[in-house]
Amino acid sequence: MITLSYIDNADNCTEKTITFSTNKELNLSNRDLHRVSFEKITIHDSDISHCGLRNANFTGSTFINCDFTGSSLINIHSEQVTFRNCIFDNAKFYSITLINSSMIGCRFSDTIMHNFDIISNNY
């Protein structure tokens, strides 16, 4: 079971949670997941496209075959996160720091990266 907590800006900045019974084929598309915590989890074959991922926590997590198309990843500081065979087409990366992390076999088409710091990473 996976439970994700986030701040819903559309609902007066209320803290909300989403719970899934499995870590595969999650549909998180088109959500504003401000300060969502993906800490120390593995997610497979999931749709995380067109999401607002501001101040998200990806530390210690693995994403395999996930689609981040059109998502905005803003102000993220992540350590030991692995993205394997993920799609980041038309995604926007702003103020990102990845430390001891990996992006293996990922696709980036028309992706915007601004203030993207890579520290001891594997690509």
Rank of each mutant, 00 (worst) to 15 (best):
L73H: 01
I18T: 06
T22C: 07
H50E: 15
H77W: 12
E79G: 08
D32T: 08
T69N: 14
Y6V: 03
N100W: 05
G105M: 04
H50Y: 15
S72R: 07
N55S: 11
I2H: 08
F58K: 02
N57G: 03
S71Y: 01
I99H: 12
N115G: 09
D67K: 02
Y94A: 04
T111V: 07
S78R: 03
N100I: 04
S72W: 03
M103K: 08
D8A: 00
I99L: 13
F83A: 00
I96S: 00
T82C: 13
F20C: 05
T69A: 08
M103Y: 00
H44E: 06
G52W: 03
N90C: 11
F88W: 04
Q80Y: 14
I119Y: 15
K16W: 05
S120G: 10
L33E: 06
L26A: 00
I76N: 00
I118L: 14
H50C: 11
S46F: 02
N65E: 15
S37E: 08
T59Y: 07
L26Y: 02
R84W: 09
T42C: 03
L4Y: 04
G60N: 13
H114A: 12
I87M: 09
E25Q: 13
D110K: 15
V81W: 03
K16H: 03
A56L: 06
N9H: 11
S29E: 14
S49P: 04
F116E: 11
